[in-house]
Computed example of a mutant assay.
Amino acid sequence: MQLDESTDVVDTSQMAVLVRMVFSDFTIKEDLSKFIPLKGQTTGQDLFSSFKNIISSEKISLSKMVGLTTDGAPTGS
């Protein structure tokens, strides 16, 4: 699962949710799952809460996720 937060042309923060799946025959499928508008701040806690809501609503098991990568952007205090 890849999450990408950005601000659109009307100053609304949105999070794009992309999914990459690898099957038992090693074929790969990638798909844009959804866009989620974010209200107010977009702190790390806000993004994590949105992530938890996504995996809960889509019934995605954390045991199926095998990696985590960040873009290394600094966070505000």
Score class of each variant (00 low, 15 high):
1 M>T: 06
2 Q>K: 09
3 L>E: 03
4 D>R: 06
5 E>T: 11
5 E>S: 10
6 S>E: 12
7 T>P: 01
7 T>L: 03
9 V>C: 14
9 V>R: 13
9 V>S: 14
10 V>K: 08
10 V>L: 09
12 T>L: 11
13 S>N: 10
13 S>W: 01
14 Q>S: 04
14 Q>R: 06
14 Q>A: 04
15 M>H: 03
17 V>P: 00
17 V>D: 02
18 L>Y: 09
19 V>W: 00
20 R>K: 06
21 M>Y: 02
21 M>H: 02
23 F>D: 06
24 S>M: 07
25 D>Y: 06
27 T>E: 04
27 T>Q: 03
27 T>F: 01
28 I>E: 02
28 I>K: 06
28 I>R: 03
28 I>L: 01
29 K>G: 05
29 K>D: 11
30 E>H: 00
30 E>L: 01
30 E>F: 01
31 D>Q: 11
32 L>G: 00
32 L>C: 01
32 L>F: 03
32 L>H: 00
32 L>Y: 00
32 L>I: 03
33 S>L: 08
33 S>M: 04
33 S>D: 03
34 K>L: 02
35 F>L: 14
35 F>R: 13
35 F>T: 12
36 I>L: 08
36 I>Y: 03
37 P>H: 07
38 L>T: 05
39 K>E: 12
39 K>P: 01
40 G>T: 07
40 G>Y: 06
40 G>C: 09
43 T>D: 06
43 T>M: 08
43 T>H: 08
44 G>C: 08
44 G>R: 06
44 G>W: 03
44 G>N: 09
45 Q>V: 15
45 Q>D: 15
46 D>G: 04
47 L>W: 07
50 S>N: 11
50 S>Q: 11
50 S>W: 01
50 S>T: 11
51 F>P: 01
52 K>Y: 07
53 N>F: 06
54 I>A: 05
55 I>T: 09
55 I>Y: 11
56 S>N: 15
57 S>H: 03
59 K>G: 09
59 K>T: 13
59 K>F: 08
60 I>G: 01
60 I>H: 04
61 S>F: 09
62 L>D: 10
63 S>T: 13
63 S>D: 13
64 K>G: 12
64 K>F: 11
65 M>L: 13
65 M>R: 02
67 G>L: 05
69 T>E: 08
70 T>Y: 05
71 D>E: 12
72 G>I: 07
72 G>R: 12
72 G>Y: 09
73 A>I: 11
73 A>V: 13
73 A>C: 15
74 P>F: 13
74 P>M: 14
74 P>K: 15
75 T>R: 10
76 G>S: 14
76 G>K: 12
77 S>N: 13
77 S>E: 13
77 S>P: 13
77 S>A: 15
